[in-house]
Write a protein that binds this DNA or RNA. Structure first.
Lengths: 336, 336
DNA sequence: CTGAAAGCGCTAACAT
DNA sequence: ATGTTAGCGCTTTCAG
């Protein structure tokens, strides 16, 4: 590997001068700077990020923590889209990404230890479990952090606007004459809490009576669970006219169940998803769902974190909310 | 951050002794080793990977190159599953993952330069464009590499067994009485070439005549393209009885088209996918498709690369082939 | 405008 | 069994 010393020798300059010339912003003569950069290019010089880090304490590396019970976070479209956009935005700014994890081989590092081990400049956290002491320790550390879909005190976060999302859905349902609205919630997280609160509030505003038997505890991303909840709802003496699902993917389990009951969508029963995964537009009928702007969420999170890293003095903790939009689709029937 | 020097002072030992004690495998007294490790733990010591790298030239970092025209490789289930399993397997062995890319901000690094910049110990390459000079340069460098679904001379690779996959599909179709088999191919890659060759060969073996008008150039992961090809096939005077798609996802575009033509699956026309994405099991009817063992592919790739890294003398280039299996599903009808 | 020298945290000969 | 020392590649005062 060609290093600064090699360039120095080749140019007949000192190591220090070459270093300065390469960084550009010094008081060297313009000629020298250009000359050095030219030679460096010819020699195929690539700086060594680790050596630089040792000196500057800046790794240009962003930690990403995606904790998931099933350790398959990357396989959820919502998260993989966010990750992808974090990565793109980070790269545009000269940063790389490192997944923070428990490092099994090494002494089973905690998340914080792993972050230090790799010297990341900051961490983006998108987890299902923000109560995990390790996650809390990471957030409370001196490292800049941005959380996604969860707010810690005095810390920056980027949230998908779940309150608005549920509001929009309820409004749309009411417009279409629905009064018997069932709601299958996801696991008990802060996101779910926001959605549930928003649900009750929106129903109150629209004078929609909420029947407790229409509210089902479900889970995110598990079609079987949504299927089971759907079955229970369908077997109710006073069946709802529409079912809201925790997400588009688990909704598929609901569709299966509805078809088993010999019902048609939306003629016999309406359904609404959440997320707006690509598939939702490919299904027939096209899904009625709320499309989360997941790539924007990733971009905002990366930008905010980089801002926090690069401007520690002036960057303030911030709550960024990212709006989505209603995909009207064809799975909600206009009634009476 | 607590460093070795701090531990040394706290223990009344030299820096060198502490370093040795921490690594364990030295000629220090067992007592000292235990004592030092104890103190290190109490002080919350975490080694600095970069400092270590500078000395040892080992980063315990694996580069992952996922090039994709649409830069959304992570959003393809096949790739995201592979990535996820690479990550898991790497972590089990104490490695982290770094995405190799063109680093826009820095001087637009080449893939190879980026790999050097981050000092990765090796690279796993899963690309759609193995003809890219930059990819070739990376493979030809001194870095250990493992490619996925493509074979370079004298280099290790892990391949999904596409030849077997197509064979199994054809066998299954023939068993079910199909003779008019249409095949929509993906983009022109080596994977596609293997599949096409296998297609012709399997048809020959089973005495299935191949009609050129049944062979369509398509694309991976673009439902619209599969939709268009489907339309053309359906409008043929002598319609095929079954259509094979490049992948499960783009197949959805075909379904839409088939339904537009008022045809039922599989009563009026049979369809077969490729990949075995999770969705394929949720759709009704359940998709007939060939399930690629993508997580096994990732695991094998990571293992082989780590073997190459850790045993440069004894590890040989290897072609690893990963088999999948037929998911019979319900979209192929048994005819006469 | 350019160079000398120190040091980031760590490991690995080579002493002792 | 433990310590001394050099140095990995880089940046950054501080001198000249």
């Amino acid at each position: 590997m060609v290093k600064i010393k090699d360039i120095a020798e080749s140019c007949g300059l000192s190591i220090a001068s070459v270093s300065k010339a390469l960084s550009g912003k010094s008081d060297l003569s313009q000629k020298t700077i250009e000359y050095v950069q030219q030679v460096a290019k010819e020699m195929g010089y690539v700086p060594n990020a680790s050596a630089r880090l040792l000196k500057t304490n800046r790794s240009y590396n962003i930690g990403v923590l995606f904790v998931d019970k099933t350790s398959s976070g990357l396989e959820h479209e919502y998260f993989s889209t966010i990750l992808n956009s974090i990565k793109d935005e980070a790269e545009k700014n000269g940063y790389d990404i490192t997944f923070i994890s428990h490092h099994f081989s090494n002494n089973n590092l905690t998340f914080y230890e792993h972050a230090k081990y790799r010297n990341v400049d900051g961490v983006i956290i998108a987890s299902v479990d923000f109560k995990d002491p390790e996650v809390i320790k990471l957030v409370d550390s001196s490292l800049p952090t941005v959380t996604i879909d969860y707010d810690f005190n005095d810390k920056s976060s980027v949230d998908s606007d779940n309150v608005q999302g549920i509001q929009d859905i309820i409004s749309y349902l009411v417009e279409n004459g629905h009064k018997k609205i069932a709601f299958i919630q996801g696991d008990d997280t802060s996101v779910t809490q926001k959605r549930v609160t928003s649900f009750y509030r929106a129903c109150a505003i629209h004078n929609v009576p909420v029947k407790e038997e229409y509210i089902k505890q479900g889970a995110y991303h598990i079609p079987q669970v949504s299927g089971k909840a759907t079955r229970e709802l369908l077997e109710l003496p006073d069946r709802p006219t529409v079912i809201m699902y925790p997400d588009d993917y688990s909704l598929l389990g609901g569709i299966t169940e509805i078809e088993k009951h010999g019902l048609r969508i939306p003629e016999d029963i309406s359904i609404v998803g959440y997320d707006g995964i690509k598939l939702s537009r490919l299904l027939r009928p096209v899904l009625t769902t709320y499309v989360q702007n997941s790539s924007e969420i990733g971009i905002q999170a990366a930008r905010k974190l980089i801002d926090l890293i690069e401007n520690p003095k002036t960057s303030l903790p911030e709550r960024i909310s990212v709006k989505g939009y209603m995909q009207k689709g064809e799975t909600v029937k206009k009634i009476n």
